[in-house]
Simulated scan of single mutants.
Amino acid sequence: MAGTSQARDGRMALSFILEKNGAPLTGTSGSLAIGEMGFIISKASSTSAFGDIPVGCFFIASASTTLKDGDSIQKVKPYFLGFATSKSLSQSKNVVDVTMDYDAATNNVSDGVVSSSGSISGSAITETLNMESGINILQSRFTSIISIDGSTIEYKEAQTTEKDILMLGWNFRDCKVGEFLDIDIVPALFSNLSKDASYGSSQTFNVDYTGNFSDENNFVGGHYIVKNVEGLLPSIARPQAAS
């Protein structure tokens, strides 16, 4: 059983790409069911349904939530990166040595700007365009995709400058109700895709990304600790097979 103070096995981590899902929800006519998620567009001047979370940040409903007048949120849908076998996120700050004769020991400062990068690595799998597929979203960041199935022909144009939003759920698999979810939201520009096929080993599909403060919609990243309640995790977060 996974507890809050226990080290986690790598298989506990699951990764997703978050894509816009419908028109923004606005005002008291908008509501989120438990487990629905999105990015905050605006907030009520007082007593917002989003509490102290700033505009532009990610929000996941841990209870049925009705928006207030002035609240607005863009819902997103998680696309499961089921091909993945490893995920990484690295963050760093620029440090400058400002030690001088007054100092008895090393003295450093930072401009506070955080750089982030990482990778999603896994097995190469084939999926058709008419399926909701995270691996096809990643492929389309580098090249167009053409699907030919008899007389059914589909074309997905490459979007090589598009930024994506990654959701890294470090303990999504088998997280129990009452435990806390550990989540990183990362606006990411995918910078490298590599495939490998060697005798005696699995074919691979690997992507590298550079983290950004925000995407083109001004949706920003952050680290989230969310208490898991019944129905909170998307059903895709407990997959039976690859997406």
Rank of each mutant, 00 (worst) to 15 (best):
S123A: 15
E179Q: 08
E132V: 11
S144E: 14
I236V: 14
S15T: 14
V226I: 15
G221H: 07
D184T: 11
A197D: 09
L18C: 10
S121L: 00
V186S: 12
A124H: 11
D184M: 03
L14S: 05
Q159S: 13
G70K: 02
E154Y: 03
S151H: 06
I53H: 04
G3D: 14
A197N: 12
S144H: 06
L129D: 04
S116Y: 05
V76A: 06
S194A: 13
S45H: 07
S140W: 00
S64N: 06
I183C: 02
I135Q: 10
L129P: 07
E36T: 13
G38E: 05
K43R: 01
N228S: 11
E36G: 09
L14P: 02
I34A: 03
N21H: 15
M167D: 03
I120Q: 05
S42M: 02
S90Q: 09
S86R: 01
V177G: 12
N192R: 13
G10A: 12
R8Y: 08
V207Q: 03
G112E: 13
T4A: 13
K93R: 13
S117P: 07
S15C: 12
A242V: 01
A33D: 13
Y102P: 01
N192P: 01
I148S: 11
D103P: 05
T28A: 14
Q6T: 15
T66I: 05
D196N: 15
F172W: 08
S151M: 09
E132G: 14
N212T: 07
I146D: 11
E230F: 00
G112V: 04
T204K: 12
L14D: 02
I40T: 05
N108M: 07
V186Y: 10
V207L: 01
W170F: 09
K195D: 03
D182P: 02
D71T: 02
L81R: 00
V98K: 05
S144F: 01
S64W: 00
L129A: 09
Y209W: 13
A84C: 07
R11D: 12
I225K: 13
S29T: 15
E157R: 08
V96A: 14
A49C: 04
